[in-house]
Amino acid sequence: MRTLRDYRWKPIVIAEALRDFGAIWYLDSSVFFTKANVSHVCDLVTCHRNVTDRPPMLPSAARDLREANEKHEDGWNRDIWARNLKECRKGQYLLHGYSGHGILSVTHPNVYTYFPTNPSQLKKQKAKMYDAGFVYAVNTRQTMMDIVKWYFLCALQQDCMGQKGAVLGCHFPNEDRFSAYAGCHRFDQSIINLVLANQFWYDRRYYVSEIVDFFRIERGGSQLNYDDQLGCIRVL
């Protein structure tokens, strides 16, 4: 863990917090809540308590078409939110902020030694990568055994998460941000997105909230005093 820029400490922090508190928001220092009430996000997880009759899941080809035709998340789309509540198929480990590219393009090829995957599915645009530094997670059996367990174990193995010689800077060939490797690695972010994609049919709609009206991300700015903006979030 001494090489902090491998970010191998982050899965351990998340796993221990989930163990101790049951449900958590994990935020990097660049993330700011812009709303006090985030119950509309939590509803995507709490729906599992009451769901009894889900509509049939769309086949992969239909979900490819949906990804191509539907507008990317912008604010809070109530129609998509209502559909997600009715389907109630999202996982209980939710990401939120789109990173601007796919998973395959920024994941070191050696990672697949540890995580066998379907590369043809991983090249599709519905296998988008989302920021690992902004997470809402609930301690359920699925979360801990199917997601956090593998995230945690990969962090303990340097050659899994902290690939030797890996760099953050990417060079996307022909501006292809999905189907070609860009020569970079996003460490913990690559791993958690790969684990989630493998678990949820290589479709980001099942591991992200699709709601972006409650936060903003500010990176690389000067140090500012945000004391007057501090407060508590509410889950109603």
Results as ranks from 00 to 15, higher is better:
Leu95His: 03
Phe214Ile: 10
His185Gln: 02
Ile192Ala: 10
Cys42Met: 15
Pro116Glu: 10
Phe214Glu: 10
Ile14Arg: 05
Met57Phe: 09
Ser99Thr: 14
Lys10Leu: 01
Gln223Ile: 14
Thr117Lys: 00
Cys47Lys: 03
Val138Tyr: 00
Tyr112Met: 13
Val106Glu: 13
Phe33Tyr: 02
Asp64Leu: 11
Thr3Phe: 11
Thr46Trp: 12
Gln199Arg: 13
Lys90His: 00
Ile103Phe: 03
Tyr181Phe: 14
Arg234Trp: 07
Ser39Thr: 12
Leu153Pro: 07
Arg177Gln: 06
Ala197Met: 05
Phe172Asp: 02
Ser222Ala: 14
Pro59Thr: 07
Gln92Lys: 12
Tyr181Asp: 05
Tyr26Thr: 01
Pro56Cys: 08
Cys160Asp: 09
Tyr226Glu: 08
His96Thr: 10
Ser179Met: 00
Glu70Asn: 13
Cys154Ala: 06
Cys47Ala: 05
Cys184Asn: 03
Tyr7Met: 03
Pro11Thr: 02
Pro119Ile: 15
Ser179Gly: 01
Gln125Arg: 15
Gly220Ala: 09
Ser30Phe: 03
Tyr181Cys: 03
Ser30Asp: 13
Thr34Pro: 04
His101Val: 04
Gly231Gln: 02
Leu196Asn: 10
Thr140Asp: 01
Pro55Thr: 09
Asp213Met: 03
Ala166Glu: 00
Met145Tyr: 14
Gly162Gln: 09
Ile24Glu: 01
Lys149Met: 03
Leu85Gln: 03
His185Ile: 07
Cys154His: 05
Gln229Ser: 13
Val13Trp: 14
Glu210Val: 04
Gly165Asn: 14
Leu224Ala: 13
